[in-house]
């Protein structure tokens, strides 16, 4: 456990010492502010021109899909690429492998470090969007606040599965830009394919990125919820096990 904690602290340290991650956090806050302002203007227009600006609802729940579908996947891809592919390319991976830590612990530490950053990002987005919503005089009730908080928390497991998937792909090459490109293309393909082949939405884990709506909104059948939960967990386990196996056999 001590080795894992040391590896986790190191990976987190390495991640936050890259200025781009702090810059992206600031960009996230700016997006929240812009969203709230535009949403407020749009809300005013809704009364006059109908519901054409509903997508800009200035609530924590309104801003979540944008981050969930676009920004968080990109940040996850960037994080795993930096901690896995770039380290292999720059020969810095051996600095950690030569230390007293099992490889699977090091691999897990990298994933947990990326997810820690995403969790902090989620917390920032939630806090800023909630404060702005209150400041703009559109108070959220306690019930809505708890639901929003639960929604944010529920996105973490699916994002962790995405991180495990991205880490597995990141192990396959030594060119950061190529891996990043590959990840974006694969993610886009997995996001678009269910539109043409609806059956895939039941199978591809990327379809579950918005699963918090099922848990928070109108409660679906228990069997369906269990089915989705099993699929998410199974994907997570398979991706992590496959990734740690590949990482264990890698030569640096």
């Amino acid at each position: 456990m001590t080795a894992f904690v040391a590896a986790y602290l190191n990976e987190t340290d390495k991640l936050v010492r890259r200025k781009k991650y702090i810059a992206f956090l600031i960009i996230g806050v700016v997006i929240c502010i812009a969203w709230a302002v535009l949403g407020s203007i749009a809300s005013g227009l809704i009364g006059q021109h109908g519901g054409i600006f509903v997508a800009l609802a200035p609530t924590p729940m309104g801003v979540l899909p944008f981050f969930l579908q676009i920004l968080f996947p990109l940040l996850i891809f960037m994080g795993v690429t930096d901690l896995i592919t770039t380290e292999a390319a720059e020969h810095t991976m051996k600095a950690m492998i030569c230390r007293p830590v099992e490889r699977w612990k090091l691999y897990a530490a990298k994933l947990v470090a990326v997810m820690t950053y995403i969790t902090i990002y989620l917390a920032c987005v939630f806090t800023v969007s909630t404060i702005l919503h209150q400041a703009l005089g559109r108070g959220l009730g306690m019930d809505a606040l708890v639901r929003a908080l639960a929604s944010y928390a529920l996105t973490i497991p699916t994002l962790a599965v995405l991180a495990a998937f991205a880490a597995l792909i990141a192990l396959l090459g030594r060119s950061s830009s190529l891996i990043m490109f590959l990840l974006v293309v694969v993610y886009l393909a997995m996001s678009v394919l269910p539109v043409f082949f609806p059956i895939l939405s039941e199978l591809l884990f990327t379809s579950f990125l918005g699963w918090h709506r099922l848990w928070i909104g109108v409660t679906p059948a228990a069997s369906r919820m269990l089915h989705m939960l099993v699929i998410v967990v199974a994907y997570g386990v398979v991706f992590f096990m496959a990734g740690s196996l590949v990482f264990d056999r890698k030569e640096y």
Binding site: A3, D13, K14, T92, A95
Partner: peptide
């Protein structure tokens, strides 16, 4: 194997965490 974007001290501190 050194992390270019960090200082000499940080590199040593990262390694020191394991001991």
């Amino acid at each position: 194997a050194l992390y270019e974007h960090t200082t000499v001290l940080t590199n040593l501190r990262l390694a020191a965490r394991f001991y």
